[in-house]
Every structure is written in structure tokens, then in C-alpha cells.
Design a protein around this nucleic acid. Structure first.
Lengths: 339, 339
DNA sequence: ACCCTTACCGGCATCGTTTTCATGTCAGTA
DNA sequence: TACTGACATGAAAACGATGCCGGTAAGGGT
């Protein structure tokens, strides 16, 4: 690692003071045209690059955003892409840290980013996270913070998320409309907000349609295809077997799909299946899977925009909340009635 | 953003000098036990965190690795996960920048990271990248650099990649062994190293088996399912239509698969298909797709390890190269002969 | 009484840059 | 001549931490 050219080198070479060089480089007033020219020429020649660390130290600002996410699956990778795009445009660099769905790692990442002195945080919590001290600490230090996707409902922080209740409502209503009678839900981890919201939308829609809720038809499991497979097998072996499953993620839906096929059931005739996220893979499977589109890229961009707004404005934004409306994409796994 | 507690605050409160406080906090010699205790107690109370920027400026070291990748698809996300894991363990934070397969963005990212003063670079080039001045600049500045996955062959830099020739060889030989006679290849972008390596392995294997190469059966296209679909359609409409396709990525294979199905051809009976990467989705499709496993997570970890080695050792490592051996995973799309 | 060691601590420079304040020069004006 | 102001530049503080070097005081040995 070679020593970089500094402002001092230029100053020395031109018998100027560092202050004058600094001013010349930034086109400030009070510098004669000749010195300005000379400075710029030499800077060019020596490939001078201002040292960002020194600037950051001085201004107490790093132009860096800490992003903490539970994993890098399709949805989050897409969101990160959206965040990245907007942040880059605005001159910010993004530090992405994966908590790997682990509470401990999430705390570690928070600490790391905190003393890397990022200008702010964009966070989506892990499925293990149930206490929020580390998040609150960010707030206490008055560091800008935006939550996205997996938000914390009862916390006074700007947040952006999907209308998960509505998404579940769309999915459930669709299954009902297609004539499925005993609809089960494959929910995610029990303490996770998005999981509960989608469950709530499901239950609410059943009620609206005056369909009795069978508690055995609600199964929680981790966001993992294999667990979903096991859970679905369990559902299919019940006495009052369901005739449709609403899985709150496509990964879960795929696990369920394998179990359904193994049981010799045909979709959509014998059994209905709806997923969530609208991952590209849903369109490719046989049968293709009906799913809820959540506009991940847009959510990412909106999140970064809100973050930037928070950085630049001084007003309190802690009650700001953006909720994105989902859209149901109907495919073979649940389309029983042709239109 | 609140002012953080500094070493000066502690010094002032305890009527000590900053140097003493600094030493006390780091358990250095020459500090009495009482002052040490007092300093640590107060530091704890005030939630003192050393300012990393100041340290970085002083030591000229940021403990940050700049990672530049072309996208965040399954393979690269997995590799990044591997890099992240090893880096975190070693006390480094990773800055991931996506070039989005754009040469311009790659250069921009390099510039950004360069003047963010990262301690080094881990890079996988975009498919557009044909000149390497920006990469060479990193080398010129003597900043540690490791290439991975999509490496630059004729450049004197430590690199880690898959044995792409061997992977293609495995895939092609398998198709030949299964009795396919006219095998086409869906190659990636023409200037991309991995694309050409896989093509080379393909051609070489045909030659070894004394099979004539039909130049029309080599088609290049971007890593994009839709382009692959179009390319496959083209292949299928030829006079001497191929009876198998080796696609150099699973995404391409999926695009081809759709075209094959549309043409009314049954896999593996009428047509053979092999992909590359062994993405989880290959196992889920109907038929499931034979693919070449490339151990992305391991490659990621190995890359980070090599990077750390480079940082810590002083010797020249520019000729170091690790080549990972791939493995063929045979599935329905090409298994014609039961064993 | 003198010197030397040892333990403990403070001063200062340093990293690279910005910024405020001060300084010096020269021309113009009363 | 003396003052004013513009103009160009320099000196120094500041950001937060480290580390070298030097200083002081206490204590022991002669």
C-alpha cells in the first residue's frame, strides 16, 4: 500500500500553505487564478485524491449507510439492490451485513457498524429477534434509522413495509373464490411481525367469509423449504385434511408442493396452493405457483429515499410509515375456475 | 446524532492526560492500578467507544474490504456469504458493491472504494469488462487484491475460481454417455472468461470423443433467461436440430427448458439438458435439471482466506491460484440410461 | 548528600483536511 | 501622508486517538 499524495505534498512543492492548496482545490474564493491553476495541475499530475478518513473525522460524517438484513435470498437481494441504487446516486456507500437470521449476529453487526460510525442504519430484523435493545440504542444515540420489510410494529421509527395483511387477504380470498373449503396456512416463525400479519389477514378473511377456523390448520415453521415439507406432510396426514395451503413465502410453498405431489394430489384440481413473494421460480415450476407480488425493488428504493430524507431534514420523522400494496399473481397451482 | 464520549472527556473528568487514559484503556504498562480502574469505570459509565475514524487515519488502515461483484444472484450471494463469514471472524467489515454487469458502474465502484480507503479488494468482474485499467490501478497502488469466480486469466493477481473447463467436460461427457448425438452449447457473453473456459471444455470433450463440432451449435447470449429462451428457440428451429443443450448457467438452462417444452420435446427422452451452478431451483423443476455444482460458499470462504493471507504476509502472492473442482449432479433432464 | 532506578504520568507530534483568524501587500482615496 | 479596503496567503486549531520521549517523585544504594 503506497503512500497517497496529500495536500501537504502539493503545498510543499509549490511553496504554499496547505490552507491555500485546500482552497484552490475547492475553487474557493480568495485564491489567485495562477495559484489555483498551478495547484490543480499538480494535483492532477500526482493523482491527488482527498483522504476521506480525514474528512470524515473532521465533519463527523462518513457518507456510509449500514444495512442489516437477515439473509440474502431473492427478496432481500432485490431490496438491497434498490437501496444500493438510490444510495449510490446520492453519494452514499452501503455496508451490507447479514445477520443470518441470528439474534447474536444482528447485535454484533449493529455494534460493528455503530463504531464504524456509519451515518445511519437501514434494518430488517432477523426472525430470532424479540428484544430490541440494540435497535433502541441506535435511536438513543440519535442516529438516523429506518426499518424495512420486517419492521417492528410498536416502535416509533420510520418504516416501510408491505401491507402483509392485505397480501394474505388477497391470497386467502382467492382460494375461497376458487372453491377451496378447508384452507390451511403455513406461517413463518411465530414472533416475526410479517408472519403474524399474514396470519392475521388469513384469519380475518376466513371470518369475513364466515368460514370456521380450524386451529390445526395453522402451522408455524422456519423459513426453510425442508421444514415446510415436513409441516405440509403433517397437514396432509390429518383426519380433516385441508384442500388448500396458503404459504407465507414461496420457499415454504415449494416445500409444501413437494409434499403435495408426493401425496398424489393434483393441483389445482385436488389441492390449491398459494405462495408469497412472487419469486421468479414460482413461474417456472410445474404447476406454476400463484403468489403475492411484493415489489421488493420498489420497497428498497423507497426505503433508501426515506432514509435520505431523514438525513437531510431536521424534523422528526419517527411516525412516518409507508405501506406498499401487494398484488396477487394467479397461476396454475390455484386456478380451478377458468374465467 | 449525539456527540460521542471521547478520550478527552474522560481525561478531563479525571484530571488526567489523554495519553494516560489511552494507555489505561488498552491495559498498557506504566499505568497504576487505581487510575486504570478509575478510567475503565468511567469509560464504562459514559459508554465510551473508541473512534474508528481517528484510528484509521492514524494507522492508515480501515479494517474494511471492498467487494465488487456483478450482481447478487444465487451463486454470488452465496459466495458473498462465505466471504462475509471469514472476514467478520477476522475483524474485517465488508463493503459490497454491485456493478450490475455494467463496466461503468464497476469503475465507479472501484473509485468509490478506493477513496473510501478500503484495506483491499475482492473482485469478480462484470460481463462487460474487457479492459482492466481500473483493476491494474489497484495493483499499482500496491493495494491487496484477490480475484474470484470471474477472474482475469492473463493478469498476475492471486485468484480463486472453479475449474470451468473441467465442469464443462463433466457435463458434456455425461451427455455423450447418455447417447445424445448433436449437443449444442448455450454459452454466456463472448468476452467473459468463465464463458470461454466452459466453451473450451465443451469443444475439447467433443474432440476427445471424436464428435464433429457444428459451429452453429455454439450460441452466445447474456446471462438472462429470456435471451436464453430466444437462443434455444433458434437452435430448435435449425435443420440439423441438436438433441441436447449444455447451458453454462442454470438461468440459461431454464430459459432453454421453456423453449424445449414449447417445442413439444420430452426430456430426457427426446432432448437432454444440463445446466451449471446447481442452484436449488434445478432440483425443483419438472423435469429436474442436471447441473454442475460449483461450491460457491467454499469459494467465497477460500477467497476471503486468501485475501487475509495476502494482507498479513509480506511475500508476493501474485502467482497464487486456487482452482476448485466441480461436481456433476445428475437429474431427470438428462438421465436416459438408468444404472 | 548524591546518584540511579523505577513507576507513573504529561507534552507533543502525528494522521489529512477544513476553517477561522491573522497577516502582509498594494492600490486607491481623502 | 495616512487610512481604508481588497486581495492573497499563512498559521493554527480542530476532529480523536496513539506513541515516543521526557519529566517528576519516591525509594534504595553508596
Amino acid at each position: 500500500m503506497e503512500r497517497q499524495t496529500t495536500i501537504k505534498d502539493i503545498a510543499l512543492a509549490l511553496r504554499l500553505s496547505t490552507s491555500t492548496v485546500s482552497r484552490a482545490l475547492r475553487d474557493a474564493a480568495d485564491v489567485s487564478i495562477e495559484t489555483r491553476k498551478a495547484v490543480k495541475a499538480l494535483a492532477e499530475e500526482l493523482d491527488y485524491q482527498p483522504n476521506k478518513l480525514a474528512l470524515s473525522l473532521l465533519k463527523n460524517q462518513t457518507n456510509t449507510i449500514g444495512v442489516i438484513i437477515p439473509n440474502l435470498d431473492y427478496v432481500l437481494a432485490t431490496m438491497v439492490k434498490g437501496i444500493d441504487e438510490v444510495a449510490l446516486e446520492a453519494g452514499y456507500t452501503v455496508m451490507v451485513c447479514q445477520s443470518d437470521e441470528s439474534f447474536g449476529r444482528e447485535i454484533l453487526n449493529t455494534k460493528r457498524l455503530l463504531d464504524s460510525l456509519v451515518d445511519g442504519f437501514i434494518v430488517s430484523v432477523s426472525s430470532e429477534t424479540m428484544v430490541y435493545e440494540h435497535i433502541k440504542k441506535i435511536q438513543t444515540k440519535k442516529i438516523p434509522l429506518v426499518l424495512f420489510d420486517r419492521v417492528i410494529n410498536n416502535m416509533n421509527v420510520p418504516k416501510i413495509s408491505l401491507d402483509n395483511v392485505e397480501g394474505a387477504r388477497l391470497a386467502t380470498q382467492h382460494l375461497i373464490d376458487q372453491g377451496y373449503k378447508r384452507i390451511a396456512i403455513l406461517a413463518g416463525p411465530e414472533n416475526l411481525g410479517i408472519s403474524n400479519d399474514r396470519k392475521a389477514g388469513f384469519i380475518q378473511t376466513l371470518k369475513q367469509n364466515k368460514i370456521a377456523l380450524d386451529k390445526n390448520h395453522i402451522i408455524h415453521c422456519d423459513f426453510n423449504q425442508d421444514y415446510a415439507y415436513i409441516a405440509a406432510k403433517e397437514l396432509l396426514s390429518m383426519n380433516k385434511r385441508p384442500d388448500a395451503i396458503f404459504a407465507i413465502s414461496d420457499r415454504l410453498a415449494i416445500g409444501a408442493m413437494i409434499a403435495i405431489k408426493e401425496a398424489g394430489l393434483k393441483m389445482p384440481k385436488d389441492f390449491g396452493l398459494v405462495g408469497f413473494n412472487n419469486e421468479p421460480v414460482t413461474k417456472l415450476l410445474t404447476p406454476s405457483i400463484t403468489s403475492v407480488e411484493m415489489f421488493a425493488f420498489d420497497i428498497g428504493k423507497a426505503t433508501a429515499k426515506m432514509f435520505l430524507e431523514m438525513i437531510h431534514s431536521n424534523e422528526d420523522m419517527s411516525d412516518k410509515e409507508i405501506i406498499i400494496k401487494p398484488k396477487l399473481v394467479i397461476r396454475e397451482s390455484s386456478r380451478r375456475i377458468s374465467e
